[in-house]
């Protein structure tokens, strides 16, 4: 959105300049006083409560051993390691699912946005139905749905085997992993083998991760699709006519004339969608994927230090959000200078 013509017109009877200034300062002091009083009361009461319940304060707990395991994942974590490391692992998991989710959602969203504008009725209607369906149901419900589907898969002993070395069961998706021998690019492939209650070896993708990834990607893709559609429609009609008059085919016109101009309109709102995906990854708590939010939850349950744990999590999410917003502002200013859209 354009910078505002925000009228800061002073409404009201004209007061003498010095009088107005005094009033302004007075109001601000009053508001600040009230705010501080509120904070102080709460703080005092909280301190009393914490002492009464024997809950520690401060961030020392971070260096204590966590005492819980984190389910298999990219990063190993044993119960002897510290809470701090546990939270770090959680954060890395959040970043992992967010990055992948954003990548998939972008590609999917772009396709959906273009599909919405297709001249083939079936394509535009089906993509429209998809967008409406996904946008009008809660994300949590979709995540639970995908997770439930994964749990309906057969047991490891009866796992689906669509391709050699690829197994799909309710414990997850198992893929063959490349092995490096002394620095040579992969000489062999290690296939997963049935062992006990699950599979050993190979790359495993947990159903929690898969459900979260699929749910987040499909949900965000719907919103990005609408943004893409709006961006393309925002490109002036004359642009498409000029491209057509020059003999450019529809795909060429889209690629060289429409999309470059549309992207300028698409990128800012898409960035906020990406941030939403990042924040929505916190729903992992409901599925059991050990990301930052889940591990924060476990930590505060075990240590009882809710304030520190939640504040820490909020700080992390907030830092990322603000950093991305700042970057987006810089980008906006840069494009405006370059002599942007139509």
């Amino acid at each position: 959105m354009s910078q505002s013509c925000a009228p800061r017109v002073r409404i009201g009877p004209r007061v003498s300049w010095r009088g107005a200034r005094a009033k302004a300062i007075g109001w601000q002091l009053a508001v600040l006083a009230v705010a501080m009083a509120l904070v102080a009361t709460v703080a005092v009461q909280t301190a009393i409560n914490l002492r009464a319940r024997g809950i520690a304060s401060g961030f020392d707990f971070l260096s204590r051993p966590a005492g819980f395991e984190i389910a298999r994942g990219l990063f190993s974590f044993s119960s002897r390691e510290s809470y701090a490391r546990a939270l770090l692992v959680g954060l890395l998991n959040t970043v992992r699912v967010s990055f992948l989710g954003i990548a998939i959602a972008s590609v999917l969203g772009l396709s959906i946005g273009i599909a919405r504008l297709s001249g083939i009725w079936i394509v535009s209607t089906v993509s429209r139905a998809y967008v409406e369906l996904v946008r009008n149901t809660p994300l949590l419900l979709q995540l639970l749905f995908w997770y439930t589907l994964s749990q309906g898969l057969p047991a490891p002993s009866d796992a689906l085997n669509p391709l050699p070395g690829v197994y799909l069961c309710f414990r997850g998706l198992f893929l063959p992993a490349p092995i490096w021998h002394d620095g040579f690019p992969w000489i062999g492939v290690e296939a997963p083998t049935l062992a006990g209650f699950g599979f050993q070896g190979g790359i495993s993708i947990s159903p929690e991760f898969a459900a979260l990834l699929v749910g987040l990607s499909t949900y965000t893709a719907a919103f990005i699709g609408e943004t893409v559609r709006g961006g393309i429609l925002a490109v002036g009609r004359g642009q498409i006519e000029a491209a057509a008059a020059l003999g450019l085919s529809r795909p060429h016109a889209l690629r060289f004339v429409v999309l470059p101009q549309a992207l300028r309109v698409i990128i800012p709102p898409s960035t906020s969608q990406y941030l939403n995906l990042f924040k929505n990854s916190s729903l992992s708590v409901a599925i059991g994927y050990p990301d930052l939010m889940s591990i924060t939850n476990t930590t505060l349950n075990q240590t009882g230090q809710a304030i520190e744990a939640i504040a820490l999590a909020m700080a992390v999410y907030l830092t990322v959000s603000l950093a991305v917003s700042a970057a987006m502002n810089l980008y906006n200013r840069a494009t405006l200078r370059r002599g942007g859209g139509a």
């Binding site: 002036g236 004359g238 006519e241 000029a242 008059a245 020059l246 003999g247 060289f256 002599g339 942007g340």
Partner: peptide, 15 residues
């Protein structure tokens, strides 16, 4: 369209 060129009132240059 390959053999006919058109000039528009609003120019429609690609910005």
């Amino acid at each position: 369209r390959r053999r006919v060129g058109m000039v528009f009132q609003q120019f429609n240059l690609f910005p």
